[in-house]
Write a protein that binds this DNA or RNA. Sequence first.
DNA 1: AAATCCACTTGACAAAAGGCAAGAAATTTA
DNA 2: TAAATTTCTTGCCTTTTGTCAAGTGGATTT
Lengths: 191, 191
Amino acid sequence: MNNRESLTEFILTIVEISRSDAEEIAASFQPFEIKEKAYLLEENQISNDYLYLESGLMRTFLYNLEGEEITVDFFTENNIVFEVTSFFNRFPSEAYIQALTDCKGFRISYEKLNTLFHNKPTFRDFGRAILVKEFIASQKRNYGVIKRTAAERYQNLLITRPQILRYAPLKYIASYLGVTDSTLSRLRKNK
Amino acid sequence: MNNRESLTEFILTIVEISRSDAEEIAASFQPFEIKEKAYLLEENQISNDYLYLESGLMRTFLYNLEGEEITVDFFTENNIVFEVTSFFNRFPSEAYIQALTDCKGFRISYEKLNTLFHNKPTFRDFGRAILVKEFIASQKRNYGVIKRTAAERYQNLLITRPQILRYAPLKYIASYLGVTDSTLSRLRKNK
DNA sequence: AAATCCACTTGACAAAAGGCAAGAAATTTA
DNA sequence: TAAATTTCTTGCCTTTTGTCAAGTGGATTT
């Protein structure tokens, strides 16, 4: 059973607006569920989902030139899930978004998001704040990859996002951290 | 002498709008110049500049816990320069933005940008497209750091942004690539 | 011009991480 | 429940990168 109240609360943490405005934004999303291992987005599709993840774990991955699967991001509950290039630029996706556990939440389409973006000042602020938030997260991750050893990055993940380590297989975490399976296995052992 | 036409052209590459709309957006920016080694932003300031860089080279850097200076980004001509956290969230900056050469371009303040964001649909689309563009660039950089060796990252920089290698000292490039000065010196020698 | 400083290079060695392959453990399938 | 498949661990050795320290060359200062 979905609980739109959690989305309202989430919105209130993102922008400073009234509860009724947050409820109005939340009301424009529709309930959504996806099963473990299913795909929210596949390669070459144009993404049409901007998803508030109420519960569950998802990941984005793609194939590199060597044909290896690389997990580029994990999404945990109480976050917005979207593939920025495909969703906002309306390009065929290079990436997949997959549910790693059963997930539920609320989604909105590109068309509806765009209408609200142009017609509702509060939604506009919310949308921009989400982009800013995710952009900052990406920059922070960059910094972490550059300045920390694999062991430190693993420790950091362990502390800040333990759900990932609980539900994602080692190989996904390894490619996300930028190390081989063997190396991650050894890091994990020494802690 | 500043040339607002270059900003208009830049805007037209970012969003699909009419030339007169692009000119109207460009007209809301004001000419700006900054000398080599000067700071556009310093630690603890709240950034108020959203800058179109018409010519020159800039960098963002910060100090890590060990007190080392880390260059986290370079800005080359025909790009927007801003510090997302401080500018959009109105937080005191952790980062510095410094001109590495004499630079010129056009700037707009947060207040003015926000007014236009809410009142001009074309500006709104432009602003969002810039955020999306920079977010994608950050994600791409992440991917590059994770999946490429330092030698490959250097090669890539050499090909895609040669201006940086021409004007930035080795130590800035090294911390940007996530390697030590010694390692970068050796990489450069072997190529 | 001498002294100072800074950017960069280089050598010797150490640490971090990868590659590969074998095997153990866990999970899925038949 | 047995077989097959996938996931994870481990040993051995190689490659990549870091650390530290010395040294070169250029630019700037006095």
